[in-house]
Structures are given as structure tokens and as C-alpha cells.
């Protein structure tokens, strides 16, 4: 399979102290590292799930791919050529990558009708020779809504409907890659499958690559081919979804999977699977950054940072003592 997206050693850093104060602040505390040394690749037709809790850097990583946030180190290659630069320089790339944002309603421009919103990609890229109204009708039908929605405004839509509109917009220009940031956020259990089913069906039809960023482990389990687990900005485990769920190698992955509440009253857990909280990005723990919450932590974990290494041809983990 040809690699569509290749990310290698990516760092995304945010300035936290700005202006004249930056001159006084110690060098290390001017920035926080949201993403550190992240490497992953997505092939055409593949679904990659990027999983993490809040503050894990998964959204920053997704936004860095299309240049909404700049990256400081590492490379992002799309179809083999490196990306980066100004909004103008990124335009051709953004034409080929569709993005869905977390908040289904807030990611739709509030003063535009659904019809105008769906025509936006064609306007932005000044695509000639296509009837924009017809395209909007084609797109709205593709996501299973009737043409009456074209006259509505985003605030008149339910979360699930807005999610479909966001999906239709992301797919407007037949992208080669779709990035979906928390596609189930804010949706009820009974409708959260809709958007994902649609994505999956359209992927089967068009063969695009899918990068799904989520904290929803139970959902991603069913729809992704491979998973990457992020913790404090680093990818701590990567591999085929089935393998990871069957036998997680990183203690954090194991805790994350065990923390999902089971809808079965006969299963009662005695203790929460992971104690403690995610440390602050500003005060990263020494050694392995997960050692503060890891029940297997040794002195080595507290002092020496583990490298990302392969434990199988298609599986990697950032841990001195992988489980299993």
C-alpha cells in the first residue's frame, strides 16, 4: 500500500509566555511541547485511530498536518512531498485533505446556510465548470439529509445533522485523506455510529485514508485498522487495533482499555485501573513520563526515558518493560 501521510519525529510547541515577559522567563518555560517526537503513517484506504486523553496532543498533531498550527521539528509528508508554509502555500494540500472538527455545530460558520457552507470548498478553490448548487445537493444527499436542509442555518441543526454537514463539507472535493477530530463528541450513543458508518461507507467507495482522533476507545475499536496511543504528546504505543486490544503492550494502553466502563452489572471493578492524573505539560516527569501512574515503574523508569522500539514488525511501544 502506498503511504499517503508520513509523519516523522514531529514536535509541536506552543509559546506560553509572550511579549517582553519572554525575555525574563527562563528558556525552558517559555514553551510547552504539545507533541514530541511523533511518527506515524497512514496509507490510502486505511483507517488510523489516534487515541489519547485531553492534553495528550492528539488534536495538535491533527492540526499540524494541515498547518493550522506550525511544527518546530520533524517532517510531515503528504503523498511523498513535504508540507508546511503559509496559508497560501498550504492551499493545494488543503484541497486534498478534508478535516472534520470536534464541535459539530461550532465548526460551521454561523451566518451561512448549509447550502452556502457546502459550496464553500468550491468557492475557496475557485473550481470552475461545476454547478455549485448541484454540488451542494449531491453532497447533502450523500450524507443522507434531504435538500430542505440546504436552506437551514447551523444553529437549527441537531448535533448529528451538523456532524453530517461537516462530513459532507470535508468530502466535497474528493480528498485523498480525511482527518476527523472526535467525530463522536457531543453525540448520543444512538447516533454516534451514524457519522462513522457514513465515513466507513464512503471510504470503501472512494478509498481515501482516514485519520480519526478520539478519546472514545469503544468506538475506535470497531472502525480503525491501526491505533496510536498518545500520552503527554508522545506516541507510546502503535500497532494493529485488534492486537492492541487483545494484548496491550504499554501499561497506559492497558489502563485506558480497562477504564472503559462495561455495560454489564455483573462486572464490578474493585479499584480504578489507573490512579493519579495526567501530569502538567509544563512539568514533565523525568525518565518515562508515565512512571508517576504506572504500577510497574522501577528506578530505571524514573530516570531513563524509554525509546520507541518495535516489538513486532507492525507494533511499537515506548516502554522499558512492555507487558505481555
Amino acid at each position: 500500500m502506498a503511504e499517503l501521510l508520513e509523519i516523522d519525529g514531529l514536535d509541536v510547541r506552543y509559546r506560553v509566555v509572550g511579549g517582553w515577559r519572554a525575555l525574563l522567563a527562563p528558556r525552558g518555560s517559555r514553551f510547552v511541547d504539545a507533541v514530541l517526537d511523533a511518527s506515524l503513517h497512514v496509507a490510502a484506504g486505511e483507517t488510523y485511530g489516534l487515541v489519547g486523553e485531553s492534553g495528550s496532543g492528539k488534536t495538535s498533531l491533527a492540526r499540524a498536518i494541515i498547518g493550522l498550527v506550525p511544527h518546530q521539528a520533524g517532517s510531515i509528508r503528504f503523498r511523498g512531498s513535504p508540507t508546511g508554509g503559509s496559508d497560501r502555500a498550504m492551499r493545494p494540500l488543503r484541497r486534498d485533505i478534508g478535516m472534520m472538527f470536534q464541535d459539530p455545530v461550532a465548526s460551521l460558520s454561523p451566518r451561512l446556510t448549509v447550502g452556502r457552507l457546502l459550496a464553500e470548498p468550491f468557492r475557496i478553490h475557485a473550481i470552475p465548470g461545476r454547478d455549485r448548487a448541484a454540488e451542494a445537493r449531491r453532497l447533502i444527499a450523500m450524507v443522507g439529509l434531504d435538500a430542505g436542509f440546504l436552506r437551514m442555518y447551523p444553529h437549527q441543526l441537531s448535533g448529528g445533522q451538523a456532524r453530517r454537514v461537516g462530513l459532507a463539507r470535508a468530502l466535497a472535493l474528493d480528498p485523498a485523506l480525511v482527518i476527523a477530530d472526535e467525530p463522536t463528541a457531543g453525540l448520543d450513543v444512538s447516533v454516534q455510529g451514524e457519522a462513522l458508518n457514513l465515513l466507513g461507507a464512503l471510504q470503501a467507495e472512494h478509498g481515501m485514508g482516514l485519520l480519526i482522533v478520539t478519546h472514545n476507545l469503544p468506538v475506535i475499536r470497531h472502525i480503525s485498522d491501526r491505533l496510536g496511543i498518545m500520552y503527554l504528546g508522545r506516541i507510546v504505543e502503535q500497532g494493529p487495533t485488534r492486537a492492541i486490544f487483545r494484548r496491550p503492550a504499554h501499561p497506559y494502553t492497558a489502563g485506558l482499555i480497562a477504564a472503559v466502563p462495561q455495560p454489564d452489572p455483573d462486572i464490578k471493578r474493585d479499584a480504578p485501573p489507573l490512579e493519579g492524573e495526567i501530569p502538567s505539560l509544563r512539568q514533565r516527569p523525568t525518565g518515562c513520563e508515565f512512571h508517576t501512574r504506572c504500577r510497574f515503574a522501577t528506578d530505571m523508569c524514573r530516570s531513563v526515558a524509554p525509546d520507541y522500539r518495535l516489538i513486532a514488525p507492525d507494533r511499537g511501544v515506548r516502554c522499558h518493560f512492555p507487558l505481555g
Binding site: 492540526r63 494541515i66 493550522l68 496559508d87 497560501r88 498550504m90 492551499r91 488543503r94 484541497r95 485533505i97 478535516m99 472538527f101 470536534q102 464541535d103 461550532a106 465548526s107 460551521l108 460558520s109 454561523p110 451566518r111 451561512l112 464553500e120 470548498p121 475557496i124 478553490h125 461537516g166 463539507r169
Partner: peptide, 25 residues
């Protein structure tokens, strides 16, 4: 806000974002 990020993610430039999405709001 996400809708401005979404427009940029589709390739919209600053003038388009300001005139069509910021100003009306």
C-alpha cells in the same frame, strides 16, 4: 473558533476568512 479553523483547513485565505466569516459575526 472552530468554524474559522475549518475554513482555513479548507484553504481559505485571510481576506476571505475576515470578509465572509469574521465580519458578519
Amino acid at each position: 473558533q472552530e468554524f474559522v479553523l475549518a475554513e482555513r483547513a479548507m484553504g481559505a485565505g485571510p481576506i476571505r476568512v475576515l470578509a465572509h466569516h469574521v465580519l458578519p459575526n
